[in-house]
Design a protein around this nucleic acid. Structure first.
Lengths: 235, 235
DNA sequence: TATGCCGCCGTACCGACGGTATGCAACTGC
DNA sequence: GCAGTTGCATACCGTCGGTACGGCGGCATA
């Protein structure tokens, strides 16, 4: 398998019909490279995928690859951006129409759990993203897409609880939930029965949200814990 | 810098005084390899660290390396195990003496936040661990050390709330908290001011724990959410 | 003490991979 | 038609992980 998804040589870039013939061909090969790269990166990982195998799958040569991308990492980043973009779109779609923050959070949770079960998202974004791109670059990429969705949901929930938190603390909450759901999603996908595992995750997160609701109804305030977490040894 | 930590050629393995001269030499070089590897992996990452630079730092050759390890990945795994082991010990030490589950959780949280600020733990365990070892191997390594501590804490908290959950759900809670704290720790370390960032994390997690307490006092039960999260498209 | 053995490690080498330099052919604007 | 540019192929290089093999030296045995 895996050869079936390789795009045809015939240009078919319907998004840019006004482009010249040359530009259409160029966009077609570039797209073919990203397609094949996404497939192979997902299947074998970044390090185990050779550029030769990618260009062979796209039926071009390394000359074409290095014409469109500055190197292997840049190609990975193009794949990364597309996967992130698709994921973010899917989540946004699921959020649409929900007004109640708690329902919104539940819908977002389910959408995220669905996204995180895609092999390409787990492999490319969660597993290899931080390692290949470096954490800094990984973070700034992700903050413009999926993480932004999580942050949006978190803001809604916090606003529903009448808590007024500064920007940094909201970001912290979003980080926590994002990390929690990424890790949970990873374990869901590798579970024997992903269905019940996903249900467990939903139960657990739902329980945490229920705790938020309980605190909101009782009017409990946030107590800052400036108790001073010791910083790490400089080793 | 970085050359200062390279061990001397003279054997100095005080842990095994009964060993023969040969064995001492052997253990010394093996230890030197792991030391240098840990340092270089932490500083430059796995892929950007060549075996030549490692053996040069340890003042041996590749023959020695391949005598002690089956390859680069095995060497990384040795480093990984040691870093994980140290981290787990540090957390266990912090947990000692605490009887109240909530205090225990707070102490564990602080210990973890401290550990996760070590550059070697973030780089080797969190960032590159899943990518280099593969998620399966990463998980089984980690479940014997740091994750076990988190699971222990989670069990305590859940037991304090009188909730009787099955094993899978407890593991799910632990996964969630582990991922949350890993992600949070990563952002703490890369923050402009890690001190206040750590305080924010403590506040946020503390708030979630407060929600647990509120639910425990009100006797709220866990409602399983078998509402069926849709599984991913097979792409 | 002599000797055979084997653990420990050095040397030399290989194939594969990421990256680069260069050339050329096809398309485009004039 | 013609020069210039774009898009890509070909050939090549340096580096890296990994392997084959040899030898030196400690160590148990007679």
């Amino acid at each position: 398998m895996s050869k079936s998804s390789v795009s045809k040589l015939v240009p078919k870039v319907p998004g840019v019909p006004g482009a010249s013939r040359r530009q259409q061909y160029s966009a077609s090969t570039k797209r073919a490279l990203v397609d094949v790269a996404e497939e192979l990166f997902t299947e074998n990982g970044y390090a185990a995928t050779s550029l030769d195998s990618i260009v062979a799958g796209a039926r071009v040569t390394k000359g074409a690859l290095y014409h469109h991308f500055s190197g292997k990492q840049a190609l990975f980043e193009a794949v990364f951006e597309r996967v992130e973009h698709d994921a973010s779109r899917a989540i946004q779609k699921a959020l649409k129409g929900h007004k109640d923050p708690w329902e919104k959070a539940t819908a977002g949770l389910r959408a995220f759990l669905s996204v995180v079960q895609e092999a390409r998202y787990r492999r490319i974004v969660i597993q290899e993203g931080p390692s290949v791109l470096g954490y800094e670059r990984y973070r700034e990429q992700e903050e413009r897409s999926t993480f932004a969705n999580v942050l949006d949901i978190v803001r809604s929930v916090l606003a529903a609880g009448q808590w007024e938190l500064d920007e940094a603390l909201q970001q912290t909450f979003a980080r926590i939930f994002f990390g929690a759901m990424s890790s949970a999603g990873e374990s869901v996908s590798s579970a024997e029965d992903p269905i019940v595992a996903a249900a467990n995750v939903e139960t657990a997160i739902g329980f945490i949200l229920a705790g938020f609701q309980a605190l909101a109804e009782s009017g409990t305030d946030l107590v800052p814990g400036v108790t001073g977490v010791p910083d790490a040894p400089t080793s």
